[in-house]
């Protein structure tokens, strides 16, 4: 039995010498190619996100400017008074602004928690 235990120890030592080699040639090149593509996608995505933030900020500023100027122009929709028209446009603006803000919170703040 003692002899058998010695044999068993040797047997397990053999596992340490039984490492396998990746049998597929070109594995590294294939993976590197995919990684380069992933990196390109990532850069493209990050550029799109930056552009999207930039245009959202510009649109919001323009919206605020228009809301400020609108009462002075006396513009109103047919069948609506000037006051109701401004209220409707303000409500739409606030709704769209909050919708966009929620998207950014979901995308950039929530995943980090």
């Amino acid at each position: 039995m003692a002899n058998n235990d010695v044999n068993n120890d040797d047997l397990f030592k053999l596992i340490a010498e039984s490492s396998l080699k990746m049998p597929f040639n070109g594995f590294e090149d294939t993976v590197m190619h995919k990684i380069e593509q992933a990196a390109k996608q990532k850069n493209k995505y990050s550029l799109n996100v930056k552009l999207s933030i930039l245009f959202s900020v510009l649109a919001s500023l323009l919206g605020i400017l228009l809301l400020g100027l609108l009462p002075k122009t006396g513009f109103h929709f047919p069948d609506l008074t000037a006051g109701s028209t401004i209220l409707l446009i303000q409500a739409t603006f606030v709704f769209l602004f909050l919708l966009q803000l929620e998207k950014y919170i979901r995308q950039f703040i929530a995943p980090k928690r």
């Binding site: 490492s19 080699k21 990746m22 049998p23 590294e28």
Partner: peptide
């Protein structure tokens, strides 16, 4: 990382 770890990862 590919060169260093691919064989063990495959194993």
């Amino acid at each position: 990382f590919l060169t260093t770890y691919k064989d063990m990862a495959y194993t």
